[in-house]
């Protein structure tokens, strides 16, 4: 296929793909909101005085760490109904919410681990170290945005599944490589600068902290990743 023709096709489909990317952001923000709320509860429980609470929180955190997001996605798609009827009103349970819930499970583990560290630092009077939670959280948001592409496998109309729609609609297999690369560029342009900014924020915070945090602690704080 002609390069010019390919470029023209990509430009023509850009608004459609951009609309898909908005969905990636919406799914990710929802996942972060749910995950942060639940993860905060676990983090507070972990720093509590009662050992029972600490143990329960650790167990739940370990659970969220070991469950694969990708499998949960299929689980929710297959097992949870698509609409509920309560008092004659039909409430939909859309696929994108299921994707957010699946991703939120990973966020719960991350927030539980990192917020409990931050809470301890705060109580120990080390405010700067506690504030490291913020760039860490934002970097994790970037990871979740990338993971939100997996929502395409359960039929959410985000950017990757819209790529497939574009390829199907144009019927040109030669376009495939370019459409996928184009979508990849979207992710890179969103994720890379944000990640760079957060790395910078982290370094500034670290230099401001009177007693410097060891590199290993920072590495450990970043460790909780998602698939």
């Amino acid at each position: 296929m002609e390069p010019l023709e390919t470029a023209r096709a990509l430009v023509a489909w850009t608004p459609f793909l951009a609309g898909g990317f908005v969905w990636n952001i919406v799914i990710s923000l929802t996942a972060m909101a749910i995950g942060t709320a639940l993860g905060s509860v676990l983090a507070v429980m972990r720093t509590a005085a009662r050992p029972v609470l600490v143990r329960a929180s650790l167990a739940l955190t370990a659970f969220t760490r070991n469950v694969p997001t990708f499998v949960v996605l299929f689980y929710l798609a297959f097992v949870i109904p698509v609409e509920f009827e309560i008092d004659n009103i039909v409430y939909p349970f859309p696929a994108w919410v299921k994707a957010s819930i699946a991703l939120a499970i990973a966020v719960v583990g991350f927030v539980s681990d990192n917020l409990s560290t931050a809470i301890r630092a705060w109580r120990g009077g080390n405010r700067g170290a506690a504030l490291l939670f913020i760039p860490g959280w934002t970097s994790y948001f970037v990871i979740i945005v990338m993971a939100s592409s997996t929502a395409s496998v359960i039929g959410v109309g985000e950017i990757v599944s819209r790529c497939n729609t574009v390829i199907g609609a144009t019927g040109r297999n030669g376009l495939m490589l370019w459409v996928y690369l184009y979508a990849m560029t979207w992710f890179f342009l969103f994720c890379f600068p944000l990640n760079l900014l957060m790395a910078r924020a982290r370094r500034r915070l670290q230099t401001r902290i009177a007693s410097p945090v060891k590199a290993t602690d920072v590495a450990a704080a970043k460790a909780t990743d998602t698939d």
């Binding site: 990338m146 592409s149 297999n173 490589l177 370019w178 990849m184 992710f187 994720c191 890379f192 990640n195």
Partner: peptide, 23 residues
């Protein structure tokens, strides 16, 4: 390494399997 880390693995798989694989 930066590109590999800052793009979704699912898309990387599609690019290599369908895109490059097709060519």
């Amino acid at each position: 390494a930066t590109v590999a880390r800052m793009t979704p693995p699912l898309l990387q798989i599609y690019v290599v399997f369908f895109g490059i694989g097709g060519v």
